[in-house]
């Protein structure tokens, strides 16, 4: 039906207000306020609470990455007491190294890359969670403040051995107890 039967002034009012119900207007206002709160939360969490997502850190050539440099000898190294770095290669279908051993309360920076397919690197019970993409280096820094074993699992499909692809971070009371490093 066309608008013919409605009185003209009414029609104008409806026109201006798009015929939006007052309840609906309030609902929309509330949605916008919630939205602003979300924006603020994401921003605060992203910038000031030290939550770290991977960024554009470094690029490598996947064809030769394991030939020289740190990736030729993947593993954990102590930079200074309480500070470690690890170079991890994710390849079909294993992580090298399979074990990262560090003392509790030390900070570790982990770099992961892949010479073949895409893989994933997620350390259970932490917020370390990265994609591993050939050509890119995924880097994260984290402080382990609890003793225990934290498996790292490949969570991107990478072929038939994908289900077997995992390693473990062992956080120990002091280094030496477990041999390495």
């Amino acid at each position: 039906m066309s608008s013919g039967e409605d009185g003209a002034p009414d029609q104008l009012v409806e026109h201006l207000s798009m015929g939006i119900d007052p309840y609906e207007k309030n609902w929309m206002r509330a949605s916008i306020i919630l939205l602003v709160i979300f924006f603020a939360t994401v921003t605060v969490a992203g910038f000031s609470m030290g939550i770290q997502v991977v960024g554009a850190d470094a690029e490598v050539d996947p064809r030769i990455v394991t030939d020289s440099g740190p990736w030729a000898e993947p593993g954990v190294r102590m930079i200074r007491p309480g500070e470690y770095e690890a170079y991890v290669i994710a390849q079909t279908w294993a992580f090298v190294p399979r074990e990262i051993v560090i003392p509790v309360n030390s900070e570790i920076t982990i770099h992961v890359t892949s010479p073949d397919l895409q893989h994933g690197f997620k350390v259970t019970d932490t917020n370390i969670n990265m994609m591993v993409v050939p050509g890119q280096v995924s880097t994260v820094t984290y402080t382990f403040d609890e003793i225990g074993e934290f498996p790292y699992i490949c969570h991107e499909y990478c072929g038939r051995g994908h289900v077997t692809m995992a390693g473990v971070v062992k956080v120990v009371s002091s280094v030496g107890e477990e041999g390495t490093p």
């Binding site: 921003t43 850190d57 994609m131 993409v133 995924s138």
Partner: peptide, 24 residues
């Protein structure tokens, strides 16, 4: 792609905000 290497954090954040606008 929040967990992707090779995409700068700033863009991830901008898209996070835009994603929330779908809420409206």
């Amino acid at each position: 792609q929040f967990t992707d290497p090779g995409v700068p954090q700033t863009w991830k954040w901008i898209h996070a905000l835009l994603t929330y606008s779908v809420f409206f």
